[in-house]
Design a protein around this nucleic acid. Structure first.
Lengths: 229, 229
DNA sequence: TCGACGACCATTGTATACAAGTTTGTTGAC
DNA sequence: GTCAACAAACTTGTATACAATGGTCGTCGA
């Protein structure tokens, strides 16, 4: 139970950020975190530096670490890259999937269907994640799997918010159906395109979506600034 | 001149790895590095952890850090992803490039031509890098630029080795010509495909290439093991 | 009353000390 | 002679102390 402490800290802090519990711009106080987790500053610092290397936080020399703020343009860029990688994963999945891979994909697809029909966006959010990971896995490229996973996790909070938009769950599932159809038919290009568009469509709608989000954030910051005084 | 020490250490160590000065599997001794750079273990550890987050080294709890060994399959996977991202960068460059972007691309292209005609593979290696970065830049996607840069740097040593293969420089330049032609003609898909294939072709040839590389490495290790006794 | 300069305090960066674990070498027994 | 077990030394992980810097608050002057 040593050496894993840093790992645990990294995961906990990462989780706080990815769940949106800490707003972008939120300052990460080393001593406060050390007290909270009952450790010294050293492992905290090491965890923070790892997170900074992953791009989740920004460390400004002598001025502490803050949760990285992801601007609208950058978010769109990230979805753009994600779309490209998902497309690749889809094509590779068609070429390389085993029976077990396809079984896993179809199972998660069915779980998505149930969540979608129940109108349960939180359940859909969870099953959707499993569906995509099943496809990454079926591509049989460890590196691509890691890249996709990292980006997927990074975009998690925004994806979750978007699923709450009216009808988005139903549309998302319809897109999944196309993906599955192409996969089972063994149509490489179609599967790639379907997955690409499935992700890209989310990025494309973000221009206006972000506007409301950054609005909410600025009110949050006003709130926390007021609480500080 | 503080807080940059860690950055400097990170870059120095990263450089040692990327230039192939330290073989995969090489153990990174914290005190040795601390002595070498004239600092304490703390900033060394922090630099190492950042590198581990970037995937350049592996840290095994209580057992120290080693230079990550990149297996043949993984290397091919990385080129596969790189090809995909370069393709995207090419297509975006067609859509979004400014006059200055195109000027930069053509300039580096000409520099490549001169190096290729001179048969100077080292110069070509350098100019080739600038050429690709110019294209990443022309895509006007900060995130994509970062992803491409990181992967490009990561694959640097292998690319350099490959350029020494007979005729590879000439063939590489011929591929660049196609890329430039598609870019100037404004053909998005063609540019994307040309760049994709330009990178993918390198990965595809690695199966046999790696065999000789790992052979050379094992003889290196025998050598260093002999030197140790 | 507003702005600028200075001092103090809070927080980060680095070093060192201490604890815990892994590896290696030596010794003994089979 | 070889294998195993124990011990010591070396290496990593964590805590704490100290140094350095940036921000903030207060005071003084215009």
């Amino acid at each position: 139970m040593s050496g894993n402490i840093r790992q645990r800290l990294r995961d906990e802090i990462e989780n706080e950020i990815l769940t949106g519990h800490w707003v972008p711009g939120h300052r990460l106080d080393e001593v406060a975190l050390a007290n909270r987790f009952g450790v010294s500053r050293t492992p905290i610092r090491e965890a923070l530096l790892q997170l900074s290397a992953a791009g989740l936080i920004e460390v400004r020399p002598r001025r502490g670490a803050i949760v990285a703020s992801v601007g609208a343009e950058r978010l769109i860029e990230m979805f753009e890259v994600m779309a490209e990688l998902e497309g690749l994963a889809g094509r590779l999945a068609v070429r390389r999937h085993t029976d077990a891979d396809m079984k896993a994909i179809l199972e998660t697809h069915e779980a998505c269907r149930q969540a979608a029909e129940a109108g349960d966006s939180d359940a859909y959010y969870y099953e959707n994640e499993r569906f995509h990971f099943a496809i990454y896995h079926a591509g049989h490229s460890q590196f691509l799997f890691e890249q996709c996973s990292a980006l997927h996790r990074r975009l998690k909070p925004y994806r979750r918010l978007q699923l709450r938009v009216r009808n988005r769950v139903a549309k998302s599932f319809a897109e999944h159906e196309q993906v599955v159809a192409a996969l089972t038919a063994g149509k490489e290009e179609a599967a790639g395109r379907a997955l690409h568009d499935h992700v890209a469509i989310q990025g494309e709608r973000f221009s206006d979506f972000i506007a409301s989000l950054s609005h909410a954030r600025s009110s949050d910051m006003r709130q926390s600034a007021a609480a500080k005084t």
